[in-house]
């Protein structure tokens, strides 16, 4: 049965009516109309759907609405803007990272949470933190350069 949910996404409250079992991803994409979390697998295996719940990177494709509670949701669009970009967004543009770009959301959202906790990470730590995110085009080299660049920017 449908229930009412109030979701706070990028600082804005949205009330929707949906099945509590529905993964958060479909609320964000279909009910709220955001294009940034992507459907990649629906199995929490690739990261393309990652959002932050109270700052924690979360696979929205496998998170039922009933589990979201009052957590503040941040998506890639809420991470930064052209006027006030997140260092990872700047670094992605500087390093010209993506090929198809469908995986961008997963890498940036996962790396953003990691870098906010971990200052001056080693390359091994970065790789380990990002090991659950997929890129099929093979842009791994540029992804690592961009995350390292952002880490430096974030001091």
């Amino acid at each position: 049965m449908s229930q009412k949910f109030t979701l706070t996404v990028n600082g804005q409250a949205h009330t929707i009516e949906a099945d509590p079992d529905m993964p958060l991803l479909y609320a964000l994409r279909d009910d709220i109309g955001l294009n940034n979390p992507k459907f990649g697998c629906g199995l929490a295996q690739c990261g393309a759907c990652t959002v932050h719940l109270d700052g924690q990177p979360t696979r929205s494709c496998a998170t039922p609405l009933s589990a979201v509670g009052k957590a503040k949701i941040t998506t890639l669009a809420g991470l930064g803007t052209p006027e006030k970009p997140h260092p990872l967004q700047t670094a992605y543009i500087e390093e010209q990272v993506p090929q198809c770009g469908y995986c961008i959301n997963g890498w940036i959202m996962t790396a953003a949470a990691f870098l906010s906790d971990k200052k001056k990470p080693s390359e091994a730590e970065i790789k380990d933190a990002l090991s659950g995110v997929k890129c099929r085009c093979g842009t791994h080299i540029s992804i690592l350069k961009a995350v390292k660049r952002a880490a430096t920017m974030m001091g």
Binding site: T81, P82, P85, Y92, I93, G101
Partner: peptide
């Protein structure tokens, strides 16, 4: 086209 992609535009 990189900037529009990373800013979800």
């Amino acid at each position: 086209d990189v900037a529009p992609k990373v800013f979800c535009q």
